[in-house]
Design a protein around this nucleic acid. Structure first.
Lengths: 122, 122
DNA sequence: ACAACGTACAACCATTTAGTTGTACGTTGG
DNA sequence: CCAACGTACAACTAAATGGTTGTACGTTGT
């Protein structure tokens, strides 16, 4: 269905707004109703509700209904998945370093072949 | 000057586009000129150049000039900083779990005070 | 019963974004 | 020398974004 890249788009876009990051912090620390969250910010209820919806669509939080309230709760697994993507990026960088090391070793070896030291070949 | 939250905004916004994530993968794996990168995508040179600029402003890559080429290179430290933010989010969640554990222990203790077992008080 | 509360969603507006084309300018190879 | 290359940036367009207000509807406490 939704591609990995689509999910990543949604994750990073959801995290790219400071209000949404703050909401996510709160709901990771504990359940909060949408209106309780809304009271924390200097903007309309509807605006906060939209931010919650963005986080929900990205899978970073889930809502459950209790009476008239919608209780939002952060999904730590999704947060970990985002972290894993970054770890994968780091791995690419490590590969680059390894290749540089190999290249260096290769150059060193060739230089030694061309200019053997007295010590190596007495 | 630029707040932590501003940096985070820039980081996550830069990462919220799949083309930019792909560019970042390439330049983490090794240096690439902007036009070499541009050849990889089905869009104009100017579009790719703008994506590179977004990544650069976010501090996720750096450019160095060599002759007429601008060589872009990924900054793994910035990637790690983004990862650290997510780890901090996870920590909030862990705090929530600890608090739930404490609450449970508290409730259990009170229940034992109210209904001591024969075994506890023979 | 009913007023207040919590939620959802539509419609609208200003700004930003991702793309385009065009232009200008330094660098380089033949 | 100069044509081709690589880069940068401005100006424009369509779409997405973050905010607003207004409306509707189920839930709750008195």
């Amino acid at each position: 269905m939704t591609d990995d890249e689509d999910r990543a788009d949604a994750w990073f876009h959801a995290l790219s707004d400071r209000t949404r990051r703050d909401i996510l912090r709160r709901v990771l620390a504990g359940e909060h109703s949408v209106s309780a969250l809304a009271r924390s910010y200097d903007m309309s209820f509807a605006a906060v509700q939209k931010h919650v919806a963005v986080l929900e669509r990205a899978g970073l939080l889930t809502k459950r209904r209790q009476g008239r309230e919608a209780l939002a709760s952060g999904d730590v697994e999704a947060v970990r998945s985002v972290g894993a993507m970054l770890t994968d990026l780091e791995a690419l960088w490590r590969g680059r370093i390894s290749r540089m090391d190999e290249l260096f070793a290769e150059q060193t070896r060739q230089q030694q072949d061309q200019h053997p030291t007295r010590h190596d070949r007495p």
